[in-house]
Simulated scan of single mutants.
Amino acid sequence: MSIPGTQERAALLETLGTFLGQRREFAAVSRREWFQPDMANAQAYADSLPLYREEWKRLLGWPLTEPAAAAETECELLSQDALGRVFRVSQRLFGIVRTYGLLFLPAAEGRYPLVIAQHGGKGSPELAAGLTEIGSANYNRLVHGLRERGIAVFAQQLLVWDDGQEPKFDQYLLDRQFRHLGGSRVAFDLCQLQGSFNWLLEHPEIDPDHVGMAGLSYGGFYTLAFTALEPRIRVAVASCFVNDRFRYNWEDLVWGGSALRFLDGEIARMVCPRPLFLEAGEADDVFSVEGFSAPAGEVEKCYKALGLGDRCERRTHPGGHEYDIDGKAEAFLLKWL
């Protein structure tokens, strides 16, 4: 015996799926018609991006939309190892919030190019740098490889830690708290990155004309999101993130009306005309490799249309949800840094 109303509720869900599908088709047209940077040449393209950067900020919301005073910063030497010096950089953001990251400098004082190495979900600066009991896990040589090359590396702690990290917290609950107030957790994390970035570019041992960013998973997203906003970053690597955002519509990666303005392809195209490396793992069990090709292809097509095909590289590697298994991403970073 069927429960009364079952057939009617099934019809409701079926027809609602059709209704939403029609809206997704409309959103695709809306994005194409709205996101139209000037394709005349590379400089014209770059000059046309500020409008889109401001809309990206507006979409993510508070506190990214607020003017931020220079953050109070403390830099403490933690240790020295065979590759150089390790510092903790602490900031007081908006005069209240205490943030931190790790800065790795070569042993000798000098002036060095910088890469911001961004951890992903369930991660931390310590994990990405291999400073935990399990080493660097799926970050592989993200930090260590660059340090071996004499590159300064900065790793920011963002609000996406989990397994093995203390204290425990719910990143999705935190995001909902921000949304109630007109913002998002992502907006706050980007403020963290901006505060650290501004301080780093004034550091006497950092060459501000040679700065790149690379990240895995959520770190790949933050690499695209922050590089899109910050034109002083020269080159970016986003690993194991770009995908079909309708399939992977996690609540903290979706904002009101975002499909009408920015999905992964549009965010990545705000990095253009600067060099960009995109990769996905063929055995990735977090973001299926099948969803990588379409948005990554859109990005590559944009670079080629501007005559900048050598500045965009997209590839799949035979590994899983992991960063740069063979050094190709690192080589790309070093080439353009």
Rank of each mutant, 00 (worst) to 15 (best):
Y218V: 02
R185C: 02
V115C: 13
K168Q: 15
G220W: 02
L142S: 01
P208C: 09
R147I: 01
G123F: 01
S136L: 00
P208V: 14
L200E: 04
Q192S: 05
P167L: 07
G195V: 14
S217E: 07
P167W: 06
R149A: 15
R179W: 08
G195C: 13
G120A: 01
E126L: 12
Q156L: 09
G120F: 01
P208H: 13
V143H: 08
I151A: 05
V115G: 00
H180V: 13
L173F: 15
K168S: 15
L181K: 12
I206S: 04
Q194P: 00
A117N: 03
H180K: 14
L173P: 01
H203G: 00
G164N: 13
C191N: 11
L159A: 07
Q194D: 11
H144F: 00
D175E: 06
G182Y: 12
L190C: 06
A155S: 15
V115A: 01
D170Q: 10
W199C: 04
F197H: 14
Y218Q: 09
R176D: 12
G182K: 10
N138G: 02
V143N: 00
L216Q: 07
D189C: 13
L200I: 10
P167V: 14
M213F: 06
P167N: 10
G182W: 09
Q118V: 08
I151Q: 03
G215E: 02
G164M: 08
Y222H: 15
S124R: 14
S196Q: 14
V211M: 09
R147H: 03
Y218C: 04
D162T: 12
Y139Q: 07
G220K: 07
V115F: 01
Q177R: 11
G120L: 01
A152Q: 02
F178P: 01
N198T: 13
T223E: 03
F221A: 15
